[in-house]
Design a protein around this nucleic acid. Structure first.
Lengths: 336, 336
DNA sequence: CTGAAAGCGCTTACAG
DNA sequence: CTGAAAGCGCTTACAG
């Protein structure tokens, strides 16, 4: 015999399968003697409890949520903010006894099927582009969907700060009195090609968070004029060094970076050039990273951990109305 | 009507359910006209494809592996080696179209049930103790199990370097000519209490990797005598600063650390005290971290990424005999 | 190229 | 306190 089933245990005990089922699901309802017998026989047969898949089918409930990551898993683990977010998701999963299914996607053709065929009760989408086919599939499944950072999508709820408003406020602070503002930006789209642009059009940006922040900055500037915008391949301090340098080559006197990691790259580059911060160069970022205080960095503080929690609650079917996440500008010494 | 099922599509099409099934699973076998009809009707009804749970039950195959993490998820993400390991696991999952289920455990009572009730085809166990009840459950499920680093367990395969041999060799190198060797160690057990011990007994150590490395060091020393052993709470450079200091207070002239992260903590502490490396203090670690070269650190190189791959292949049921992972000592300038 | 039937292993509302 | 029956949504080997 291969793995014993509930029916095997029942037969061997001389009881019905549903009595065995009750032993695992509502042991109080079963006579103590029966319970003991069933447990003995189960141990003897090597039966370890109800098959999770069969149980899920019957209960119409998987006890797991899927987290769709718009990048390689290794990248998601390397990004400090992604880690904080996932830690928040994991905390809720633990509280609720729920499983956590990681689904990395990279834009490949089989992404959609891998996402669809995950046995989960709800989805969280992390880092996606406006036209991601995964959004369409996931939102048509009749399961709850939380999208972090956007885009808004019918059948899904977005958890995000108001990126545009935060960018507007940060620009007002950082670009005050500046003559040559500049921006170090997250990638525009999935190809993640690093480059230097001038006042790019927001419509060309596929990542909603990036686009909203650019829009907020344009809101403040009124006319983006010749705003230099360096685009990094990903949110990594060391990898961004080159683009930070390219940006400083344009001789800005104020730089907004789309994260503290990128802002650190700007501060590193400024130090190499002997620039004084904030006198020669004002710098600001997002996230209020643990190192931001030490670095004196002005930044938009937000809790990715809490946003991870919110997304998990949504994916688990909590009915609370999605509220916009909180943010606040923490002003330190890197701005004038 | 709630979510449409395959039967709904079949009825609406005037075909049998199994023809619809074939449309999704073996479309070549279906007449082109039928295929088109079925797809049309499915789209119309909002049917997105076979239910993953029902399919899994029927096929007796979940298309996912479970990774049991012996710590909070946030910790696993913070440890560079854990990240490399998981990246290796994820790579195989992508190649095979398999899902990846993360199951953090902390020694709590409900760990066992959460692990058992995951709908997965195989397990990987990362960072566990000898008497972990999870090992017992997982190995009795009739599913393939890979344990990283040990302990050996009936019904499971271990993927690991020979930690004892590597420690012996590293000790021979690092402690050569030393009069006062010392050790900065991983935690001994799940309570992860930082402390300073003297020549602790290997039997008191619940984590197999830690124990094997201590044994290898004792092999070299012959008599561990008064070997100072500082124990950290976890594998984190900054958090280990305090224990590194406590260890240097014993005035050793050679320190082996159980990872490069911990070795960096020793180098940091040595720098603060103005000690010359290796003249005053020899230092060595494990892992050959990306930063180890820059730091001139002698270390036992191993690929956690490849070990992650191996574990994933085992968990997916690959029949290859488990081979011991490779390691090699990379000698740099931190030892004499 | 398509279908009738069986069955994956379990849980549930209902009787008794 | 326990059981007979139905059914969760699908796939498969077999006929035709």
């Amino acid at each position: 015999m291969s793995r014993p089933t509930m029916a095997d245990v029942a037969r061997r005990c001389g009881v019905s399968a549903m009595t065995v089922s009750y032993c695992y699901n509502q042991p109080d309802r079963v006579a103590p003697d029966t319970l003991r017998r069933v447990r003995e026989v189960a141990a003897e047969l090597g039966y370890r409890g109800p098959d999770p898949t069969a149980r899920s089918l019957r209960r119409r409930h998987n006890g797991a949520i899927g987290v769709v990551l718009g990048e390689h898993l290794a990248y998601a683990f390397e990004d400090p903010q992604a880690r904080r977010f996932l830690a928040g998701v994991a905390e809720v999963c633990r509280e609720r006894g729920s499983g956590l299914n990681l689904i990395p996607t990279t834009g490949a053709a089989d992404d959609v099927e891998r996402v669809r065929s995950a046995s989960v009760d709800g989805y969280i989408v992390w880092t996606t582009v406006d036209d991601d086919p995964v959004l369409d599939v996931v939102s048509g499944l009749g399961k709850p969907v939380a999208i972090h950072g956007g885009p808004a999508f019918a059948g899904a709820r977005v958890v995000s700060i108001d990126n545009r408003a935060s960018a507007r406020e940060l620009a007002a602070r950082t670009f005050a009195g500046a003559r040559r503002p500049a921006l170090l930006s997250f990638p525009f789209d999935r190809d993640r090609r690093p480059r230097l642009e001038t006042a790019p059009s927001p419509e060309t940006i596929a990542f909603p968070v990036t686009r909203e922040r650019l829009l907020g900055i344009y809101d403040h500037l009124g006319d983006p004029g010749g705003l230099p915008v360096a685009v990094v391949a990903r949110n990594d301090r060391d990898e961004a060094a080159k683009q930070a340098d390219a940006l400083l080559d344009t001789e800005p006197d104020a730089v907004i970076a789309m994260s503290d990691q990128l802002a650190f790259a700007v501060l590193d580059a400024a130090r190499r050039r002997g620039l004084r911060v904030p006198e020669d160069l004002a710098v600001a970022g997002w996230d209020d990273d643990p190192d931001a205080g030490r670095a004196g960095l002005t930044t938009v503080a937000q809790s990715l951990f809490d946003q991870g929690r919110d997304c998990a609650l949504i994916a688990l079917g909590s009915r609370e109305p999605g509220r916009t996440a909180e943010w606040t500008t923490t002003v330190r010494t890197s701005t004038r």
